[in-house]
């Protein structure tokens, strides 16, 4: 694995508190609107001397966590909206929620049956996106490596 050759001095040399903001903006520029990394942009940034993103840098970690957290939070919000909204609907719209559908009350139907497929959809979406994100991260780093060697 070529990765092991990365000098680890970098990590120790950069104190935690010191955030290289200028570098980060370059990284932001390297993203297109959908959050997809543009390799050409990286190649052109003056700071990315070893051509690939430095996986030990604060910026790489920041980017990594931000992208994943954003995805997780988006999915969680979707889920919480339904989960926390249902008791509110029960509270404020009791008569609507008591409407009978084939014997079920609306709220019983939503909670006892409808909830599960909704959650499956959210998790399916999440897993696909998150695996794609990981593959993309690997491609970025390894693509850079190939260029280097």
């Amino acid at each position: 694995m070529p990765l092991r050759e990365v000098p680890e001095v970098l990590d120790a040399a950069r104190p935690l508190a010191c955030r290289d903001w200028g570098f980060q903006t370059d990284f932001k520029r390297a993203l297109d609107g959908r959050g997809v990394f543009l390799k050409t942009a990286i190649l052109n940034t003056p700071h990315s001397a070893p051509v690939k993103p430095d996986i030990h840098s604060e910026q790489f970690l920041h980017l990594l966590m931000r992208r994943q957290l954003k995805l997780s939070i988006a999915c969680a919000l979707c889920f919480l909206l339904v989960l926390l909204g249902l008791p509110l609907a029960n509270y404020f719209l009791p008569e609507l929620m008591a409407t009978r559908i084939g014997g079920f009350t609306l709220t019983w139907f939503l909670l006892g049956i409808g909830f599960f497929p909704a959650v499956w959809c959210i998790s399916f979406f999440f897993i696909r996106r998150s695996i794609a994100l990981e593959n993309q991260e690997v491609a970025e780093v390894q693509g850079g490596d190939k260029l280097k060697s």
Partner: peptide, 9 residues
């Protein structure tokens, strides 16, 4: 990094 970077790295 270990927690969040893809394992292939």
């Amino acid at each position: 990094l270990v927690l969040h970077a893809p394992e292939q790295l």
